[in-house]
Design a protein around this nucleic acid. Structure first.
Lengths: 184, 184
DNA sequence: CCGCTCATGTAACTGGTTACATGATTTA
DNA sequence: TAAATCATGTAACCAGTTACATGAGCGG
């Protein structure tokens, strides 16, 4: 069993959950997604889909639509089995290590800025993190309305993390403000 | 002004904060880090340091240690300036998009498993996420003891996110348990 | 019939990784 | 004196990206 990338399993999951669909539709899942970790570029998706098909995890069928063919993808029993294995132990350590956060890595070095600009940085982070909250809440409701319980739960994770980050930023600012005052 | 990768700015920040140090010491920052996003591989760090030096953002000086030379890195005024610019608006959208989370992307597809194994998945996530909490709290204290306020604040972000994730998982399990009972 | 979306694909590039290689220095 | 660590580096690879290319179908 060759080890597959996280993106490959994610695409397999999309084919399972949203399928049958075309590779193009898979791509749209990425381009419309609020996450920017993967772009869903054609150069990534089309070869990847081909690999999954060659491995027997998905099956593509040429469907006529007007004069043109489009390849419609379905998950196979082997694909479902691979997806299940991905959701069962053993899990790679990667799941539990500290994840990448471009805001946090900047915060490590915020002391380089004068106090006033530190406040401006935190303001900008607070604003940026809040901006998408309504849209994310709408997504959660949309998942629920469709009866996609697990997607809704997953989406709750985004909201939980974001709210925690907002509290974190607010606390940092409160602390830095207090320090600034006692000095000035 | 050529645009630099996030890793380049992070290394620049390390040189500012921990410097003067060797490229090898920079590498150790990554290999000992709880985050696994970058490995700090030699093939990444040495060419990167060379690029930063050629751009005038850091300055390397050959120091004698015994019979061997080692190159000690210091940040330059231009480097400090680049680091400040990185901490000031405008910020790329990337900072505010939903970040990669391998636990969350699995949760989207958890419905593929039978209820019992869904519970096992959530158990494993809870355990994995909790395991490093004491070590992360120790880091925070160590930063404070050293007077590195901003590093400590940044580290608080890791803790805040992790605790939020734990609550999120606990809520998901409570919900799924309730649903399972009402069915059985 | 024009522009947008659907649909599939490739070529060149990029920012990393793994694995390998070398040699001095320090520690048990 | 052997093993671990410090220190620097390169070659081959890899999983993605950007940009480009083609063409059919569809709505105004």
């Amino acid at each position: 069993m060759e080890s597959r990338s996280e993106l490959e399993l994610l695409v397999l999951g999309i084919v399972w959950k949203q399928g049958p669909l075309t590779a193009h539709a898979v791509r749209m899942e990425f381009t419309h997604s609020k996450s920017s970790h993967w772009s869903g570029s054609a150069g990534a998706i089309y070869p990847l889909v081909r690999r999954l098909e060659q491995a027997g995890l998905i099956a593509g069928a040429d469907e006529r639509r007007g004069r043109q063919d489009r390849r419609v993808l379905r998950i196979t029993p082997a694909g479902r089995s691979a997806l299940r294995a991905w959701l069962r132990p053993p899990f790679p350590d990667e799941l539990f290590t500290v994840q990448y956060d471009p805001i946090r890595i900047r915060l490590y070095f915020l002391g380089l800025l004068p106090a006033e600009q530190q406040g401006q940085f935190l303001d900008a982070m607070e604003q940026g993190l809040s901006a998408q909250l309504p849209a994310l809440e709408a997504d959660r409701d949309a998942y629920l309305a469709q009866g996609w319980l697990h997607s809704s739960l997953a989406n709750d994770g985004i909201l939980a993390v974001r709210r925690a980050q907002l509290e974190w930023i607010a606390k940092a600012r409160a602390l830095l403000d207090r320090l600034g005052e006692s000095k000035g």
